[in-house]
Design a protein around this nucleic acid. Sequence first.
DNA 1: AATAATAGTATCGACTCGAAACATTATTAT
DNA 2: ATAATAATGTTTCGAGTCGATACTATTATT
Lengths: 185, 185
Amino acid sequence: MNKPQQFINLLSRLSRLVNHDGHSKGLKPAQWDAIRYLAQANRFSRSPGALTIYLGATKGTISQTLMTLEKKGFVAKTQDLHDKRAVALKLTTAGENLAKEDALKPFQRMLSDLPANEQNDITLALEKLLLAKLRSDGNKPFGICNTCRHFRKNNQSGSPHFCDLLKEPLCDIESEKICVEQTPA
Amino acid sequence: MNKPQQFINLLSRLSRLVNHDGHSKGLKPAQWDAIRYLAQANRFSRSPGALTIYLGATKGTISQTLMTLEKKGFVAKTQDLHDKRAVALKLTTAGENLAKEDALKPFQRMLSDLPANEQNDITLALEKLLLAKLRSDGNKPFGICNTCRHFRKNNQSGSPHFCDLLKEPLCDIESEKICVEQTPA
DNA sequence: AATAATAGTATCGACTCGAAACATTATTAT
DNA sequence: ATAATAATGTTTCGAGTCGATACTATTATT
């Protein structure tokens, strides 16, 4: 088997397994993807639109997935205050509990059984691969807020940081989350 | 973001992208998975049952996928000679042409744009990860026939090799393919 | 010969997915 | 201001996935 073919085989089979683990606790893989995202996105990013970009899906599909998650009681929708078109998403308590018991935990446990150096190699390789793919597709990275070029740190404890793009204050917690607008410095 | 969470994020997002690339040329990801498999499986493995195990799906799902692939003219079914329950699968010429233009080619091209050592690191990491997962799930590896403990090599050119498990002769081409029964030596 | 195991198919309901049409609400150009 | 345009979501459609379950036909076992 030649190298490129092997790479495709590994990738497609691995993806299959990951996807398969997403059939868990009565949810579907796509629903887990959404919950996982919402558990980590900052307030500028908890919208159907941002989720759509993150998951590389279409608006319609995401709308459906969010509908069923809302019906199941894991996600709550509220209207955005500033923009009446926009919808603000939030995990309910049930949704947050679910996020803590991620369907991919078994995968994670499996990794933690490997030698520490292999764990590192694997994580690093995945990161390189993902970033290369995102770049080649022109996708947004959705990195951590406080690693963004628009992030303005405030060193006085208690007072908030600041996003220079959206002109909005940022508490510590929010600035640790992922953001649609994040652009590496 | 802690390490385990990062790993899950990388893995799930990467899988999403891989899956997404499978919506190509009018086929679905699962259909590509089937075609990719059939293009590489030896004659003992070109059956709905083996494909089911390989993809980690259920019989019913695979039956459906194969039905639509047959309807589209990419797969042909014939009855097995020895076992009248069994179905032998084969890619049609159209199916083989499709396999040569795999939906994941863009991903492969992207990899080939990376430095050679990174390509290697990434492939190796994927392999480790996949094997660890297969092991932890108790899945079969589907390795290359001639790396199997039951493979008996014949060094006289022209005469076939042999599978000591299934008691069947193996030509060079078949012994280079993947097999359900493969067990590392 | 009866029973169990195996290989597949058929059917169901919930869901995904892209595509396209459709509101609403914001933004921009005139 | 107001009209054109862009952006945010929703709805609907058809094809397909997926697990679960029930079912058929064939082969193996007892």
